[in-house]
């Protein structure tokens, strides 16, 4: 979930902006002009995934797939997520200028960590792959929700109840996201296995 404008405290906003700027700069430095188009298209696919609403019982949630993006792009996922969030802010006013840093950080840090944790398993044998892909989706969304809740809770004592509710609401989403990520990865592994090894070949 995006935190909207005018909610968080200045300290949290400033820290989020600084950390996101650092991440975006790192991602851009590792990204050469040849791969720019690929990252842009995966970033727009990430944006479009957020338009897919998956039913969970009586409610529904949109796909996030940030774990998948992280595993495919590594550090380049940070600018990709930043750009997708900036476009969402420009098009739908979800999030906004001042919270762009916090939202980028909360959405992009877990995928980059997943990249280092699960990358070898994903291009490995298929037995490991399903579990690793599930963990990517499950943990990325979970950690993003945790960071978002932390940003809220750090902004003031009065937000802690809302933060806890936000975290609780994300538990079913984590399972849905994990299952869908595992299925997407198994689909890609069958249809276009070289896409999963994309980052490693690009870095040599």
């Amino acid at each position: 979930m995006h935190i909207s404008e005018g909610v968080l405290s200045p300290a949290v906003l400033g820290a989020g902006a600084a950390l996101a700027a650092l991440g975006v700069a790192t991602g851009l430095k590792r990204l050469d002009y040849d791969r720019l188009m690929t990252v842009a298209i995966l970033s727009s696919a990430f944006f479009v995934a957020s338009l897919i609403h998956v039913p969970i019982g009586p409610a529904s949630a949109h796909l996030v797939l940030n774990g998948l993006l992280g595993v495919m792009l590594g550090w380049a996922a940070v600018p990709a997520i930043f750009v997708a969030l900036a476009l969402q802010a420009l098009l739908f006013q979800f999030g906004g200028l001042t919270v762009l840093g916090v939202n980028t950080f909360t959405m992009a840090l877990p995928p980059v960590l997943c990249f280092y944790a699960f990358r070898p398993m994903l291009s490995g044998p298929s037995r490991l792959r399903g579990g690793a892909a599930f963990a990517c989706g499950f943990l990325s969304v979970g950690a993003s929700a945790l960071l978002t809740a932390a940003a809220l809770a750090l902004s003031g004592e009065e937000f802690s109840a809302a933060a806890r509710a936000l975290l609780l609401a994300h538990v079913p989403v984590m399972f849905a996201e994990g299952v869908v990520t595992a299925l997407v990865v198994s689909f890609i592994a069958r249809v276009r296995p070289e896409m999963l090894a994309f980052t490693s070949t690009a870095h040599g």
């Binding site: 188009m37 842009a40 696919a45 797939l65 595992a182 299925l183 997407v184 890609i188 276009r192 994309f198």
Partner: peptide, 23 residues
């Protein structure tokens, strides 16, 4: 879930191919 995953996967595969071509 499988249907949505296949849709998302197909979008990703076609996007990836398009990215190569456009690049």
């Amino acid at each position: 879930y499988r249907t949505y995953a296949n849709m998302a996967g197909m979008v990703l595969v076609r996007s990836f191919d398009r990215a190569e071509r456009v690049g």
